[in-house]
Design a protein around this nucleic acid. Structure first.
Lengths: 184, 184
DNA sequence: CCATAACCGAACACTCTGTTCGGAAGTGAA
DNA sequence: TTCACTTCCGAACAGAGTGTTCGGTTATGG
Protein backbone atom coordinates (compact mmCIF):
# COMPACT_ATOMS: atom_id res chain seq x y z
CA UNK A 1 0.00 0.00 0.00
CA UNK A 2 1.78 3.08 -1.22
CA UNK A 3 1.67 6.04 1.13
CA UNK A 4 1.88 8.30 -1.89
CA UNK A 5 -0.39 7.14 -4.67
CA UNK A 6 0.31 6.09 -8.20
CA UNK A 7 1.84 8.84 -10.27
CA UNK A 8 -0.95 8.56 -12.83
CA UNK A 9 -3.54 9.20 -10.15
CA UNK A 10 -1.69 12.25 -8.95
CA UNK A 11 -1.32 13.67 -12.43
CA UNK A 12 -4.94 13.00 -13.34
CA UNK A 13 -6.34 14.65 -10.25
CA UNK A 14 -4.00 17.60 -10.50
CA UNK A 15 -4.98 18.17 -14.13
CA UNK A 16 -8.66 17.99 -13.30
CA UNK A 17 -8.38 20.36 -10.36
CA UNK A 18 -6.36 22.88 -12.30
CA UNK A 19 -8.72 22.79 -15.26
CA UNK A 20 -11.68 23.21 -12.94
CA UNK A 21 -10.24 26.25 -11.21
CA UNK A 22 -9.23 27.88 -14.47
CA UNK A 23 -12.63 27.38 -16.03
CA UNK A 24 -14.50 28.60 -12.96
CA UNK A 25 -12.38 31.74 -12.90
CA UNK A 26 -13.07 32.31 -16.58
CA UNK A 27 -16.81 31.60 -16.73
CA UNK A 28 -18.17 31.03 -13.27
CA UNK A 29 -19.16 27.70 -11.78
CA UNK A 30 -22.58 27.39 -13.39
CA UNK A 31 -21.22 27.87 -16.88
CA UNK A 32 -18.66 25.10 -16.59
CA UNK A 33 -19.62 21.62 -17.77
CA UNK A 34 -17.96 18.31 -17.09
CA UNK A 35 -17.13 18.04 -20.77
CA UNK A 36 -15.32 21.37 -20.58
CA UNK A 37 -13.17 20.14 -17.72
CA UNK A 38 -12.43 16.92 -19.58
CA UNK A 39 -11.35 18.75 -22.70
CA UNK A 40 -9.23 21.27 -20.84
CA UNK A 41 -7.52 18.62 -18.72
CA UNK A 42 -7.34 16.18 -21.64
CA UNK A 43 -8.78 13.38 -19.53
CA UNK A 44 -11.19 10.63 -20.55
CA UNK A 45 -14.77 10.75 -19.44
CA UNK A 46 -14.79 7.44 -17.60
CA UNK A 47 -11.57 8.37 -15.85
CA UNK A 48 -13.20 11.45 -14.39
CA UNK A 49 -16.02 9.46 -12.83
CA UNK A 50 -13.50 6.96 -11.49
CA UNK A 51 -12.09 9.77 -9.34
CA UNK A 52 -14.97 12.08 -8.51
CA UNK A 53 -18.65 11.44 -8.06
CA UNK A 54 -19.64 14.58 -9.98
CA UNK A 55 -18.72 18.18 -10.68
CA UNK A 56 -19.47 19.28 -7.14
CA UNK A 57 -17.10 16.71 -5.68
CA UNK A 58 -14.25 17.89 -7.87
CA UNK A 59 -14.98 21.49 -7.02
CA UNK A 60 -14.99 20.74 -3.32
CA UNK A 61 -11.72 18.85 -3.53
CA UNK A 62 -10.11 21.93 -5.05
CA UNK A 63 -10.31 23.70 -1.70
CA UNK A 64 -9.43 20.96 0.72
CA UNK A 65 -5.73 21.75 0.66
CA UNK A 66 -6.53 25.43 0.90
CA UNK A 67 -8.77 24.98 3.91
CA UNK A 68 -6.29 22.76 5.67
CA UNK A 69 -3.56 25.32 5.11
CA UNK A 70 -5.64 28.12 6.53
CA UNK A 71 -6.72 26.11 9.55
CA UNK A 72 -3.08 25.19 10.18
CA UNK A 73 -2.11 28.85 10.21
CA UNK A 74 -4.96 29.70 12.55
CA UNK A 75 -4.12 26.89 14.93
CA UNK A 76 -0.50 27.97 14.90
CA UNK A 77 -1.64 31.47 15.81
CA UNK A 78 -3.53 30.36 18.90
CA UNK A 79 -1.14 27.61 19.92
CA UNK A 80 1.86 29.93 19.90
CA UNK A 81 0.97 31.67 23.14
CA UNK A 82 -0.88 29.83 25.87
CA UNK A 83 -1.99 33.05 27.54
CA UNK A 84 -4.43 35.70 26.43
CA UNK A 85 -5.15 36.56 22.83
CA UNK A 86 -2.54 38.93 21.45
CA UNK A 87 -4.89 40.79 19.11
CA UNK A 88 -8.54 39.97 18.42
CA UNK A 89 -8.12 41.20 14.85
CA UNK A 90 -5.04 39.14 14.10
CA UNK A 91 -6.98 36.09 12.84
CA UNK A 92 -8.76 38.31 10.34
CA UNK A 93 -5.46 39.67 9.17
CA UNK A 94 -4.25 36.11 8.66
CA UNK A 95 -7.26 35.34 6.50
CA UNK A 96 -6.70 38.37 4.29
CA UNK A 97 -3.05 37.51 3.86
CA UNK A 98 -3.97 33.95 3.02
CA UNK A 99 -6.38 35.13 0.35
CA UNK A 100 -3.81 37.52 -1.01
CA UNK A 101 -1.30 34.69 -1.27
CA UNK A 102 -3.73 32.46 -3.27
CA UNK A 103 -5.46 34.93 -5.59
CA UNK A 104 -6.76 32.72 -8.36
CA UNK A 105 -8.20 30.03 -6.15
CA UNK A 106 -9.93 32.57 -3.96
CA UNK A 107 -11.27 34.10 -7.13
CA UNK A 108 -12.80 30.76 -8.03
CA UNK A 109 -14.16 29.77 -4.65
CA UNK A 110 -17.85 30.46 -4.29
CA UNK A 111 -19.26 32.37 -1.37
CA UNK A 112 -20.81 29.18 -0.05
CA UNK A 113 -17.54 27.33 0.38
CA UNK A 114 -15.81 30.44 1.64
CA UNK A 115 -18.53 31.00 4.18
CA UNK A 116 -18.30 27.43 5.40
CA UNK A 117 -14.54 27.80 5.78
CA UNK A 118 -14.55 31.15 7.53
CA UNK A 119 -17.48 30.28 9.74
CA UNK A 120 -15.69 27.29 11.23
CA UNK A 121 -12.54 29.27 11.85
CA UNK A 122 -14.54 32.11 13.32
CA UNK A 123 -16.61 29.97 15.64
CA UNK A 124 -13.57 28.13 16.90
CA UNK A 125 -11.94 31.44 17.64
CA UNK A 126 -14.97 32.91 19.38
CA UNK A 127 -15.42 29.82 21.50
CA UNK A 128 -12.15 30.55 23.28
CA UNK A 129 -13.73 33.72 24.69
CA UNK A 130 -16.96 32.50 26.20
CA UNK A 131 -17.91 35.63 28.12
CA UNK A 132 -20.51 36.46 25.50
CA UNK A 133 -23.66 38.41 26.03
CA UNK A 134 -25.07 36.89 22.83
CA UNK A 135 -25.58 33.38 21.46
CA UNK A 136 -22.31 32.15 19.99
CA UNK A 137 -23.93 31.15 16.73
CA UNK A 138 -25.32 34.62 16.20
CA UNK A 139 -22.01 36.33 16.78
CA UNK A 140 -20.12 33.82 14.66
CA UNK A 141 -22.63 34.05 11.84
CA UNK A 142 -22.54 37.81 11.97
CA UNK A 143 -18.79 38.23 11.84
CA UNK A 144 -18.29 35.37 9.41
CA UNK A 145 -20.85 36.75 6.99
CA UNK A 146 -19.43 40.23 7.17
CA UNK A 147 -15.92 38.99 6.64
CA UNK A 148 -16.86 36.72 3.76
CA UNK A 149 -18.75 39.53 2.12
CA UNK A 150 -15.82 41.90 2.35
CA UNK A 151 -13.41 39.18 1.31
CA UNK A 152 -15.46 38.35 -1.76
CA UNK A 153 -15.72 41.98 -2.70
CA UNK A 154 -11.99 42.46 -2.20
CA UNK A 155 -11.11 39.44 -4.36
CA UNK A 156 -13.57 40.33 -7.11
CA UNK A 157 -12.27 43.90 -7.19
CA UNK A 158 -8.72 42.61 -7.70
CA UNK A 159 -7.19 43.39 -4.27
CA UNK A 160 -7.35 47.19 -4.46
CA UNK A 161 -6.16 47.81 -0.88
CA UNK A 162 -3.54 45.40 0.48
CA UNK A 163 -4.24 42.90 3.27
CA UNK A 164 -2.97 45.05 6.13
CA UNK A 165 -5.21 47.97 5.21
CA UNK A 166 -8.17 45.66 4.79
CA UNK A 167 -7.57 44.29 8.27
CA UNK A 168 -7.44 47.86 9.57
CA UNK A 169 -10.78 48.69 7.98
CA UNK A 170 -12.32 45.60 9.46
CA UNK A 171 -11.03 46.68 12.85
CA UNK A 172 -12.75 50.01 12.41
CA UNK A 173 -15.99 48.36 11.44
CA UNK A 174 -16.01 45.67 14.12
CA UNK A 175 -14.51 47.74 16.91
CA UNK A 176 -17.67 47.82 18.95
CA UNK A 177 -18.84 44.31 18.29
CA UNK A 178 -15.66 42.37 18.79
CA UNK A 179 -14.72 44.70 21.62
CA UNK A 180 -17.80 43.65 23.55
CA UNK A 181 -17.05 40.05 22.79
CA UNK A 182 -13.39 39.89 23.60
CA UNK A 183 -12.90 42.61 26.23
CA UNK A 184 -12.56 41.40 29.83
CA UNK B 1 -55.34 47.70 -23.56
CA UNK B 2 -56.52 46.47 -20.23
CA UNK B 3 -54.83 47.98 -17.20
CA UNK B 4 -55.39 44.69 -15.40
CA UNK B 5 -54.52 41.71 -17.53
CA UNK B 6 -56.58 38.78 -18.65
CA UNK B 7 -57.76 36.65 -15.76
CA UNK B 8 -56.12 33.57 -17.27
CA UNK B 9 -52.77 35.34 -17.28
CA UNK B 10 -53.13 36.32 -13.67
CA UNK B 11 -54.13 32.81 -12.61
CA UNK B 12 -51.35 31.18 -14.59
CA UNK B 13 -48.63 33.42 -13.20
CA UNK B 14 -49.91 33.17 -9.67
CA UNK B 15 -50.00 29.39 -9.86
CA UNK B 16 -46.47 29.25 -11.24
CA UNK B 17 -45.08 31.60 -8.62
CA UNK B 18 -46.74 29.77 -5.77
CA UNK B 19 -45.57 26.37 -7.00
CA UNK B 20 -42.07 27.71 -7.40
CA UNK B 21 -41.87 29.09 -3.89
CA UNK B 22 -43.32 25.94 -2.37
CA UNK B 23 -40.91 23.69 -4.19
CA UNK B 24 -37.89 25.83 -3.40
CA UNK B 25 -38.82 25.80 0.26
CA UNK B 26 -39.18 22.02 0.15
CA UNK B 27 -36.09 21.06 -1.82
CA UNK B 28 -33.92 24.10 -2.48
CA UNK B 29 -33.59 25.93 -5.75
CA UNK B 30 -31.11 23.60 -7.43
CA UNK B 31 -33.29 20.56 -6.88
CA UNK B 32 -36.37 22.08 -8.50
CA UNK B 33 -36.92 21.44 -12.20
CA UNK B 34 -39.22 23.19 -14.62
CA UNK B 35 -41.19 19.98 -14.97
CA UNK B 36 -41.75 19.94 -11.20
CA UNK B 37 -43.15 23.44 -11.28
CA UNK B 38 -45.38 22.56 -14.21
CA UNK B 39 -46.79 19.50 -12.47
CA UNK B 40 -47.35 21.30 -9.18
CA UNK B 41 -49.01 24.28 -10.81
CA UNK B 42 -50.83 22.08 -13.34
CA UNK B 43 -49.73 24.27 -16.22
CA UNK B 44 -48.74 23.26 -19.72
CA UNK B 45 -45.13 23.35 -20.76
CA UNK B 46 -45.54 25.76 -23.65
CA UNK B 47 -47.60 28.04 -21.45
CA UNK B 48 -44.73 28.38 -19.03
CA UNK B 49 -42.33 29.52 -21.72
CA UNK B 50 -44.93 31.94 -23.01
CA UNK B 51 -44.69 33.77 -19.68
CA UNK B 52 -41.12 33.34 -18.45
CA UNK B 53 -37.86 32.95 -20.30
CA UNK B 54 -36.62 30.25 -17.93
CA UNK B 55 -36.56 29.07 -14.34
CA UNK B 56 -34.43 31.98 -13.19
CA UNK B 57 -36.87 34.51 -14.58
CA UNK B 58 -39.77 32.93 -12.72
CA UNK B 59 -37.75 32.80 -9.53
CA UNK B 60 -36.77 36.44 -9.83
CA UNK B 61 -40.36 37.49 -10.45
CA UNK B 62 -41.35 35.84 -7.20
CA UNK B 63 -39.52 38.53 -5.26
CA UNK B 64 -40.34 41.65 -7.21
CA UNK B 65 -43.40 42.44 -5.16
CA UNK B 66 -41.49 41.64 -2.00
CA UNK B 67 -38.60 43.93 -2.87
CA UNK B 68 -40.90 46.77 -3.85
CA UNK B 69 -42.73 46.42 -0.57
CA UNK B 70 -39.56 46.55 1.47
CA UNK B 71 -38.20 49.53 -0.44
CA UNK B 72 -41.50 51.33 0.07
CA UNK B 73 -41.27 50.82 3.80
CA UNK B 74 -37.69 52.01 3.87
CA UNK B 75 -38.47 55.09 1.82
CA UNK B 76 -41.40 55.85 4.09
CA UNK B 77 -39.04 55.60 7.05
CA UNK B 78 -36.62 58.21 5.72
CA UNK B 79 -39.21 60.44 4.10
CA UNK B 80 -41.22 60.75 7.30
CA UNK B 81 -38.82 63.16 8.98
CA UNK B 82 -36.76 65.59 6.97
CA UNK B 83 -34.26 66.14 9.77
CA UNK B 84 -31.68 63.82 11.26
CA UNK B 85 -32.03 60.04 11.38
CA UNK B 86 -34.08 59.00 14.37
CA UNK B 87 -32.26 55.71 15.00
CA UNK B 88 -29.50 54.22 12.86
CA UNK B 89 -30.72 50.72 13.73
CA UNK B 90 -34.33 51.34 12.80
CA UNK B 91 -33.91 50.31 9.14
CA UNK B 92 -32.50 47.00 10.30
CA UNK B 93 -35.46 46.52 12.57
CA UNK B 94 -37.75 47.15 9.63
CA UNK B 95 -36.00 44.49 7.60
CA UNK B 96 -36.36 41.90 10.34
CA UNK B 97 -40.03 42.69 10.77
CA UNK B 98 -40.52 42.45 7.04
CA UNK B 99 -38.90 39.02 6.98
CA UNK B 100 -40.98 37.93 9.95
CA UNK B 101 -44.12 39.01 8.14
CA UNK B 102 -43.27 36.98 5.02
CA UNK B 103 -41.76 33.78 6.42
CA UNK B 104 -42.18 31.31 3.59
CA UNK B 105 -40.96 33.59 0.85
CA UNK B 106 -37.91 34.62 2.86
CA UNK B 107 -37.29 30.94 3.43
CA UNK B 108 -37.19 30.43 -0.31
CA UNK B 109 -35.18 33.46 -1.33
CA UNK B 110 -31.56 32.64 -1.95
CA UNK B 111 -28.76 34.53 -0.27
CA UNK B 112 -27.84 36.05 -3.61
CA UNK B 113 -31.17 37.78 -4.13
CA UNK B 114 -31.38 38.71 -0.48
CA UNK B 115 -27.91 40.20 -0.60
CA UNK B 116 -28.74 42.21 -3.69
CA UNK B 117 -31.88 43.52 -2.02
CA UNK B 118 -30.29 44.39 1.32
CA UNK B 119 -27.16 45.84 -0.22
CA UNK B 120 -29.12 48.42 -2.20
CA UNK B 121 -31.16 49.43 0.81
CA UNK B 122 -28.04 49.58 2.94
CA UNK B 123 -26.01 51.64 0.51
CA UNK B 124 -28.83 54.11 0.01
CA UNK B 125 -29.06 54.51 3.74
CA UNK B 126 -25.33 54.92 4.25
CA UNK B 127 -25.08 57.46 1.47
CA UNK B 128 -27.16 59.90 3.45
CA UNK B 129 -24.35 60.06 6.04
CA UNK B 130 -21.29 60.82 3.97
CA UNK B 131 -18.87 61.66 6.77
CA UNK B 132 -17.22 58.27 6.38
CA UNK B 133 -13.66 57.43 7.18
CA UNK B 134 -13.94 54.37 4.92
CA UNK B 135 -14.94 53.75 1.31
CA UNK B 136 -18.71 53.59 1.12
CA UNK B 137 -18.68 50.31 -0.77
CA UNK B 138 -16.63 48.63 1.91
CA UNK B 139 -18.90 49.74 4.71
CA UNK B 140 -22.04 48.87 2.77
CA UNK B 141 -20.70 45.49 1.78
CA UNK B 142 -19.67 44.78 5.34
CA UNK B 143 -22.96 45.64 6.99
CA UNK B 144 -25.06 44.16 4.20
CA UNK B 145 -23.21 40.86 4.29
CA UNK B 146 -23.41 40.64 8.05
CA UNK B 147 -27.10 41.43 8.03
CA UNK B 148 -27.90 39.01 5.24
CA UNK B 149 -25.94 36.29 6.99
CA UNK B 150 -27.81 36.77 10.23
CA UNK B 151 -31.10 37.11 8.43
CA UNK B 152 -30.55 33.88 6.53
CA UNK B 153 -29.56 32.07 9.70
CA UNK B 154 -32.60 33.44 11.52
CA UNK B 155 -34.99 32.38 8.77
CA UNK B 156 -33.45 28.93 8.38
CA UNK B 157 -33.59 28.40 12.13
CA UNK B 158 -37.31 29.19 12.11
CA UNK B 159 -37.31 32.64 13.80
CA UNK B 160 -36.14 31.55 17.26
CA UNK B 161 -35.82 35.08 18.69
CA UNK B 162 -38.42 37.62 17.53
CA UNK B 163 -37.60 40.58 15.29
CA UNK B 164 -37.14 43.12 18.08
CA UNK B 165 -34.60 41.01 19.90
CA UNK B 166 -32.75 40.32 16.69
CA UNK B 167 -32.51 44.02 16.04
CA UNK B 168 -31.17 44.49 19.57
CA UNK B 169 -28.47 41.88 18.99
CA UNK B 170 -27.49 43.54 15.76
CA UNK B 171 -27.19 46.81 17.61
CA UNK B 172 -24.82 45.18 20.09
CA UNK B 173 -22.74 43.74 17.30
CA UNK B 174 -22.60 46.85 15.14
CA UNK B 175 -22.41 49.41 17.91
CA UNK B 176 -18.82 50.42 17.17
CA UNK B 177 -19.01 50.27 13.41
CA UNK B 178 -22.23 52.09 12.77
CA UNK B 179 -21.39 54.47 15.58
CA UNK B 180 -18.30 55.58 13.76
CA UNK B 181 -20.26 55.92 10.58
CA UNK B 182 -23.28 57.81 11.80
CA UNK B 183 -21.94 59.79 14.75
CA UNK B 184 -21.33 63.53 14.08
C1' DC C 1 10.18 -8.38 -16.93
C1' DC C 2 5.39 -8.67 -15.75
C1' DA C 3 1.24 -8.63 -12.89
C1' DT C 4 -1.45 -5.00 -11.72
C1' DA C 5 -3.80 -0.82 -11.75
C1' DA C 6 -5.10 3.14 -14.26
C1' DC C 7 -6.57 5.17 -18.45
C1' DC C 8 -9.13 5.51 -22.79
C1' DG C 9 -13.20 6.23 -25.69
C1' DA C 10 -17.18 4.87 -27.78
C1' DA C 11 -21.71 3.72 -26.93
C1' DC C 12 -25.78 3.90 -24.23
C1' DA C 13 -29.83 5.25 -21.36
C1' DC C 14 -31.43 8.86 -19.06
C1' DT C 15 -33.00 13.66 -17.59
C1' DC C 16 -33.77 18.32 -18.52
C1' DT C 17 -34.35 22.27 -21.53
C1' DG C 18 -36.57 25.28 -24.77
C1' DT C 19 -39.34 25.49 -29.22
C1' DT C 20 -43.09 24.62 -32.48
C1' DC C 21 -47.82 24.18 -33.98
C1' DG C 22 -52.61 22.93 -34.64
C1' DG C 23 -56.58 22.51 -32.06
C1' DA C 24 -59.39 23.40 -27.76
C1' DA C 25 -61.18 26.54 -24.45
C1' DG C 26 -61.76 30.76 -21.73
C1' DT C 27 -62.44 35.91 -21.83
C1' DG C 28 -64.14 40.52 -22.36
C1' DA C 29 -66.70 43.57 -25.12
C1' DA C 30 -70.61 44.53 -28.00
C1' DT D 1 -75.87 35.71 -26.16
C1' DT D 2 -72.73 36.17 -29.58
C1' DC D 3 -68.15 36.37 -31.34
C1' DA D 4 -63.54 37.84 -32.34
C1' DC D 5 -59.51 37.35 -29.88
C1' DT D 6 -56.33 35.75 -26.68
C1' DT D 7 -54.60 32.22 -24.00
C1' DC D 8 -53.85 27.52 -22.93
C1' DC D 9 -52.88 22.75 -23.98
C1' DG D 10 -50.02 18.76 -25.07
C1' DA D 11 -47.46 16.09 -27.93
C1' DA D 12 -43.52 15.96 -30.47
C1' DC D 13 -38.89 17.34 -31.40
C1' DA D 14 -33.92 18.66 -31.33
C1' DG D 15 -30.26 19.55 -28.49
C1' DA D 16 -27.28 19.48 -24.43
C1' DG D 17 -25.60 17.40 -20.34
C1' DT D 18 -25.04 13.50 -17.05
C1' DG D 19 -23.39 9.21 -15.29
C1' DT D 20 -22.40 4.16 -16.44
C1' DT D 21 -20.50 0.18 -18.81
C1' DC D 22 -17.01 -2.49 -20.97
C1' DG D 23 -13.33 -4.30 -23.79
C1' DG D 24 -8.93 -2.81 -25.26
C1' DT D 25 -4.53 -0.06 -24.38
C1' DT D 26 -0.84 1.83 -21.67
C1' DA D 27 1.88 3.22 -17.73
C1' DT D 28 3.64 1.97 -13.09
C1' DG D 29 6.19 -0.07 -9.41
C1' DG D 30 8.02 -4.18 -7.51
Amino acid sequence: MAAVEDRRVRRTRAALRQAMVELVVERGYDRVTVRDVLDRADIGRSTFYAHYRDKDALFASCFEDLREGLQREMALLEGGRGGGPADPIKPISVIFEHAHRHPQIYRAVGTTHLHQMIFEVMRDHLCTHDDLRLPVDVAAEYHASALVGILGWWVRAGFPHGPAEMARMIRELTAGGLGHVTAP
